[in-house]
Design a protein around this nucleic acid. Structure first.
Lengths: 361, 361
DNA sequence: TTGTAGGCGTTATCAA
DNA sequence: TTGATAACGCCTACAA
């Protein structure tokens, strides 16, 4: 049996360098026990032949692929593309690769997850997607750890990392109450997900303990998107004499931005002059000049670190012995959409905001 | 030699189904010649054993990984995260995977490219990054095709797909001239890249043929980012009696947004009332309420299709025989930052804009 | 430190 | 259509 495409293999290098094949392998392995002169000889031969170790073959024989699958549900929400970027950067820095997947709205995450399992990736990060318990147990059987990112788990045996929605919601309620808000509108997100629910809960709990009664709080559905919240706001206040609340809490930033745009364009509302407003996530867009959104930032970097840490730990052996649900606190970001918050001088805050946004072509 | 983790293999399935191992392989291969009853038997056995074909092993044996590497330079620019998403969606739909890489500003793309080559990916898409000619020839030797996305190539032997910067720049010049602009400011992008240069060229050429002399055109450096252009605008007009132009052309949308924010915040400029303005790319953020940016949209979907098409063609055999430089026309998007363009009724345009933006949590 | 031998789990080839 | 057998290119184990 003969192949057409004869690629350069470690055997070719071994022959040229006058060593055995495993020695070539060692030359490319950090901290392998190999004499310096041999390593140099091998590397020289490799360069001469344009040899590149085949990671696929390495994965097969060593049973670790150095690949982590990252499944992103909604790339339309900047929070998730920022998260994906963070995963890529972090893994790249440790010589691992990212196999990236997206799951379109409501589509089954299962097919995609199956693909990931087939590649025998070292771990799977699932962001914002509902996965069936069948697949969860399958992945467990196959021995590939799964971690949920920014998702609290319906299945308590699943490892997950997320930001403290309840605490974060509370921070925003406190800030708005302190700024004098007495009536509130909450714009909800994805009814399927727990994230929206918990943020609302944290917000309402804090208000309750501040003495704000339920009658002062209204909730509407924002569809969890810019367009959805834009429409929701447009429709909600579409009456001859709309009753505007003192404050609006949109459960995520992209929705908050949709609300702001709708309020300004359709109702000529000033923010925070007429209505104060807050979001949740801390996406870069919220820092743009027209918004300066007051929000709670999810500590993406720390969450990514923790997620990969847990995935690696799972890999070490004990498997599903210790599932962990890691909850990190959110960071309150004072913007200009809630009055009386700017401790920092406006220009300084602006500069800081700008610094935090970059982007080259 | 014994392994600890005894995973289910095709042999296990073969034994249970009472067939040979290759038959199991055939059962999982579409259009393979296998009797229906055998396939059913195999699939049943596979399901019972929770068998998943090992794609890594398949890659090794078949010499095709079904993985395409996508190297993204700047995830801070939404254009590139949108592009990455488009690649993921398209490849996923054809049962291929994306190995995602990022290259930080100015860092060497080479190390990352090397990683991709090691995985023997079927092709590599390079977006916004400078790669050395060494690596280009290496990839050619290894037989892995590379395609540049939104990059014109210094190396003319490289396949590339991009939007017609010259034509696009011309469209914007025409629109602004038609709207009455007589004096122009151009905010340049990355001086390294050809993209910015070509867009500026197209813009200036069009102005020249409209009779606008060089003395009416100023160019400044915008650093190719939101922050960079924000600062550039702030500095450029920082004088007791600043001379504002009639029109500003920022070579990409994220910079255009930075310009708008700076003009509004620092100089209280109305757009397009005081100054008209245009960008380039067609990113989602440009559609947000406060901007409604007039721009030229890059046909991302078509560009992605074309890119993958070319990568696949390269793979078919003839290798570097036919390098292709595909240039697709940009699409003029009338926004509200250049007056007199809205052919569509304002509300309808807004709705269309909103529809084009989604995003769930 | 180095080499020999064997296996990782699939697909490709060829004969039946 | 099916099965036996040989690659694919590397890593691991073990002995030297």
């Amino acid at each position: 049996m003969k192949r057409k495409t004869t690629r350069v293999t470690s055997y070719d290098v071994a022959k040229l360098a006058g060593v055995s094949q495993p020695t070539v392998s060692r030359a490319f392995t950090p901290n392998a026990s190999i004499a310096k002169d041999k390593r140099d000889r091998v590397l020289a031969a490799a360069k001469q032949l344009h040899y590149l170790p085949n990671s696929i073959a390495a994965s097969l024989s060593s049973a670790r692929s150095n690949i982590v699958a990252v499944i992103v549900g909604d790339m339309h929400n900047p929070f998730y593309s920022e998260s994906l970027q963070a995963f890529i950067n972090r893994l790249q820095a440790t010589n691992r690769q990212v196999l990236a997947f997206t799951v379109e709205d409501g589509r089954d995450c299962d097919a995609v997850l199956m693909q990931a399992l087939r590649y025998h990736v070292d771990g799977i990060v699932v962001t914002s997607a509902n996965l069936s318990s069948d697949l969860i147990s399958l992945s467990r059987e196959v021995g590939i750890p799964i971690a949920l990112f920014n998702r609290s788990t319906s299945d308590p045996t699943l490892t997950s990392v997320r930001c403290d929605s309840v605490q974060g919601g509370g921070l925003l309620a406190d800030a708005m109450f302190a700024a004098g808000a007495q009536s509130y509108l909450i714009v909800r997100g994805d009814p399927q997900g727990s994230t929206s629910r918990l943020r609302v809960k944290g917000f309402r709990d804090a208000l309750a303990s501040l003495g704000i009664g339920d009658s002062a709080i209204t909730e509407i559905d924002g569809g969890s998107s810019y367009a959805g919240s834009y429409r929701a706001i447009s429709k909600h206040f579409d009456s001859p004499a709309p009753q505007f609340p003192d404050a609006i809490f949109a459960v995520n930033d992209i929705m908050a931005i949709g609300c702001i745009d709708a309020l300004r364009a359709k109702f000529n509302i000033a923010i925070p002059g007429d209505i104060m407003l807050a979001g949740f996530d801390g996406i870069r867009e919220g820092r743009l000049g027209p918004y300066h959104l007051t929000t709670v930032r999810q500590p993406i970097e720390d969450m990514v670190t923790k997620t990969l840490d847990l995935l690696g730990r799972d890999n070490q052996g004990e498997k599903s012995a210790t599932q962990v649900n890691c909850v990190l606190p959110g960071i309150f970001i004072p913007g200009r959409t809630v009055p009386g918050l700017a401790e920092i001088a406006p220009d300084k805050a602006l500069e800081a905001d700008i610094e935090s946004i970059s982007g080259k072509n």
